[in-house]
Write a protein that binds this DNA or RNA. Structure first.
Length: 831
RNA sequence: GGGGGAGUGGCGAAAUGGCAGACGCGCAUGCCUUAGGAGCAUGUGCCUUAAUCGGCGUGCGGGUUCGACUCCCGCCUUCCCCA
């Protein structure tokens, strides 16, 4: 079907005249977006008679400006899945909002003098518009932005509740400090020793900071049996929490520092008889006391040098391990030996006890260290069949205890327990559980965040802001300088307040909360529609939570997802929630790349708007889902999108055909089989997020429906039912197109409120089947046989094939295999 | 160094242990046409062939099996996470 009189330019949507006959996305998408919103078809009631609630949530975006193609890749398939669940009969609630506090807004202020508030809300507006253009079926009545006072007020509320219950505390300590962003960072935000946001190497800085006591929940956070999450994410969380069981043991140094011991932690107490030195972190408090005058100069120089290194440098396995002697010795409590105490920068003060026992024979790093400094390497866990010779490298696996006093001869597995027993019974140490997980550092020396509701009074100390004074409003008119102080600290009106307890002049806390606090509980706020003077609506939360399906990128595996689980458990223990986990099911989409490279604004840009303009939102949605399995990511190429556009054009064309003249017969079985097979495939694939194969199935079905029409071998009514089925399956994928065609083919009401078609297994099976026939496992023919054929008949039929017979000549049949409905395999050997 | 993915045509990819390459891109040939970034039809893994037949083929090397992209063992490459 071609139109005439088209101009050469603007062939996509600039046509006039016969537009109604052609698929022209621009003509229909805006119309339906407006109508859906006016009709409120995606607004979820908190309960619907006869329907189960289904909370579909996708990690909300940071409004950085434009939604880029990566956002589309995350949100469009997620929206399709939520639409699919709605058509499966669930009362679906799919909200959207904005995680709108954070550094980029503030950096825009510092770099370009833009007001962070204006910048942020302008971006939110823009993102909202783009979500609408995507055709996303969000319940906008639940929208929230975390930078709104009515949201962040409740961050402050939770902070106070945590504080009252010992879950929030302030501590002077070594914090991760990003010199570029001029702020502290949580451990989770340090990647490879650098700031995860800007890549600047992170240094340690002593500061008083606020923490959430997430480590109190370390053990419970390790329990993940009841959540249906990718094993990969669970593993990452387990590794991050990093529970290890071992033994803490003290090495006496009273000879040099009266009454003192060096506490060390080891998971390999079985090797304790092999200790030939002990290493302290340069920051260890005993270094000063233990350094002998003769070694003082060398140690001090070493410590200065170490202070200039980043943690990543210090712990890199590539780098040579260095150390320096203190001149002191300590006593191994197991064998009474006197071993040297060194300072080494590969030991970090912030992990474990800040000191390690050196067992060169059984630890890789200690081995290298001992070789370098000529320290003794004493084997105490003998490798199997060890000849007593020098080791080439440290022996890490299990072995037989040796040089270990009364424990000689035990396997090191048993030795570990026996030695730990002895240490505990003699009170020289204890079994200890340690975690890699640290408490969550939540203070940020930044402006664009939630003010921490604390006041410091000279007389009363740390005083929480009274609940009725919340929210502590983030002031306007602040000055931005990258000088490591929160702009709030330079805002006198904000800072100086009377003490809530005594009324004397006092100062506010000027740090703000880590923005991950905002995203730790937003799902509860989405579930609590229109809460008035409370953080969450407990009754509504019960109706919706936990989230049925959570979707988002795997980059949040150990930050957001862990914090959110912690929040849920903490709020449960504070009496707000009655469930343990926030997200029942988790799906991680993969990364969208272009030319195998990460998409980036500067070097590898990819924006959706031109594609939407040219092909429409439906085409882009479907194309992103057709690229490949969603969880494995996709590789964008411009050329492939035409295939999807053609398919949607074919759907348009076939659905709008006039079937009134159809009155043939004979093709009904074909059409039934195709219909029910398609439904079976699509229902299973959509449920499992396999959008790519769903679309393949629908492409094939589109061809079948057109073929039956062309063949004219089905009655009109039956053909039209198949077309409706096609549209219903297309609806979650290409919502505008399906809605337009649904209306044009005489239906009333939105297609998105319809239910998915069902399938009848008995209509899928056919009377005849094609059997593959193999000889020696190689395909030799394909034969058409009755579907219910038995083994003997199938084999007989196979042998009657001339091509098969040729391969059986002069052969003796060894075995005959029949796989019902699939194939025959004849195994032979030369006769 | 540890943990986890992934490796299949020119490209994106599909395949409960059972006909490898569905579906789509691209390409080729043809049709249509007011010549165009449109539409339709047919073909398209590689080698051989006029065509069949046949042979080869899922990163590499072994193994289990009547039968392996799929399961097992050992490598290689690559991506992500953690050190």
């Amino acid at each position: 079907m071609t139109t005439t009189g088209k101009s050469r330019s603007g062939s996509e949507g600039g046509e006039s005249g016969n537009d109604s006959d052609r698929y022209t996305p621009a003509n229909i998408e805006k119309k339906w977006q407006a109508k859906w919103e006016a009709d409120g078809i995606y607004e979820a009631a908190d309960s619907v008679e006869g329907k189960e609630n289904y909370f579909a949530l996708t990690m909300f975006p940071y409004p950085s400006g434009e939604l880029h193609m990566g956002h589309w890749y995350a949100y469009a398939p997620a929206d399709t899945h939520a639409r699919f669940k709605r058509m499966q009969g669930y009362n679906v609630m799919q909200p959207q909002g904005f995680d709108s506090f954070g550094l980029p807004a503030e950096n825009a202020a510092i770099e370009r003098g833009e007001d962070p508030r204006e910048w942020t809300y302008k971006n939110i507006e823009n993102s909202r518009r783009q979500f609408r253009e995507m055709g996303a079926g969000y319940d906008w009545t639940r929208e929230l932005s975390t930078s709104d006072p009515e949201y962040y007020k409740w961050n402050q509320y939770w902070f106070l509740k945590f504080y009252e219950n010992g879950l929030a505390y302030r501590k002077h300590g070594q914090a991760n400090w990003c010199p570029q962003d001029q702020t502290t960072l949580a451990n989770e935000q340090v990647k490879d020793g650098a700031c995860e946001r800007c890549g600047t190497p992170v240094i340690k800085r002593a500061l008083p900071q606020w923490y959430f006591a997430i480590t109190k929940y370390a053990d419970e956070l390790l329990e993940m049996d009841q959540i249906d999450w990718p094993e990969k994410i669970k593993t990452m969380q387990r590794n991050w929490i990093g529970r290890s069981t071992g033994t803490t043991i003290g090495f006496d140094v009273s000879e040099f520092a009266p009454g003192e011991k060096i506490e060390t932690f080891t998971t390999r107490i079985d090797t304790v008889y092999g200790v030939t030195f002990v290493v302290l972190a340069p920051e260890h408090p005993l270094v000063e006391k233990l350094t002998q005058p003769s070694h003082k100069a060398a140690v001090e120089e070493y410590i200065v040098h170490a202070g200039r290194q980043t943690e990543i440098d210090r712990t890199s396995t590539e780098r040579e391990k260095t150390g320096v002697e203190t001149g002191s010795y300590c006593i191994n409590p197991l064998n009474g030996e006197r071993v040297p105490v060194l300072v080494g920068d590969y030991v970090l003060a912030t992990y474990g006890t800040g000191a390690v026992m050196g067992v060169p024979a059984h630890d890789t790093r200690d081995f290298v260290f001992a070789k370098k400094y000529g320290l003794e390497i004493r084997v105490v866990v003998a490798p199997p069949n060890w000849d007593g010779g020098e080791l080439e490298e440290a022996w890490i696996p299990v072995g037989t205890q040796l040089n270990s006093g009364e424990f000689d001869g035990l396997s090191s597995t048993d030795g570990k327990e026996a030695i730990a027993d002895k240490i505990e019974s003699e009170n020289i140490g204890t079994r200890t559980i340690t975690y890699h997980l640290r408490d969550w550092l939540i203070s940020r020396q930044r402006y664009w965040g939630t003010p921490i509701p604390i006041i410091y009074c000279d007389d009363c100390g740390t005083v929480p802001v009274p609940e009725q004074d919340l929210p502590v409003i983030l002031p306007e008119n602040v000055t931005f300088e990258a000088d490591g102080k929160s702009p709030l600290a330079k805002h006198p009106d904000f800072m100086h307040v009377p003490c809530p307890d005594c009324g004397k002049d006092a100062k506010r806390e000027t740090d703000t909360l880590d923005t991950f606090v905002c995203s730790s509980w937003y799902q509860l706020r989405f579930a609590s529609k229109n809460p008035l003077e409370e953080p969450i609506d407990i009754e509504k939360v019960k109706q919706w939570m936990p989230v049925n399906q959570y979707m988002g990128g795997a980059e949040h595996a150990v930050m957001h997802l862990l914090y959110s689980r912690f929040f849920n458990k903490a709020l449960r223990d504070l009496g707000y929630l009655d469930f343990d986990e926030p997200y029942t099911k988790l799906m991680n989409q993969g990364m969208l790349v272009k030319d195998h490279k990460k998409i980036s604004k500067r070097s590898n840009p990819l924006t959706p708007d031109p594609v939407v303009e040219r092909h429409g939102a439906d085409t882009l949605r479907c194309y992103l889902m057709f690229l490949g399995p969603w969880d494995q990511g996709g590789d964008w190429s411009d050329s492939g999108i035409n295939g999807i556009r053609r398919w949607l054009g074919r759907v348009w064309d076939v659905v709008l055909r006039d079937e009134s003249g159809l009155n043939g017969s004979g093709g009904e079985k074909h059409l039934d089989r195709a219909s029910h097979t398609t439904t079976k495939r699509v229902l299973a694939d959509m449920e499992a997020f396999k959008f790519n194969t769903s679309i393949s199935a629908l492409m094939e079905f589109t061809t079948e429906v057109a073929r039956r029409y062309d063949a004219g071998d089905v009655p009109a009514a039956i053909w039209r039912v198949a077309v409706d089925r096609l549209l219903l399956h297309v609806a979650p994928l290409a919502p505008h197109l399906a809605e337009e065609l649904w209306e044009r083919t005489g239906h009333t009401g939105s297609i998105h409120l319809e239910l998915n078609p069902k399938f009848d297994e008995s209509l899928i099976t056919s009377d005849t089947i094609t059997l593959a026939v193999q000889v020696q496992g190689k395909l030799r023919d394909q034969i058409e046989v009755a579907a219910d054929i038995d083994k003997d008949a199938a084999i007989a039929a196979a042998k009657s094939s001339p091509n098969v017979a040729r391969h059986l000549e002069n052969m003796a049949i060894v075995k005959e295999i029949y796989v019902p409905g699939r194939l025959v395999n004849i195994v032979v050997r030369p006769a």
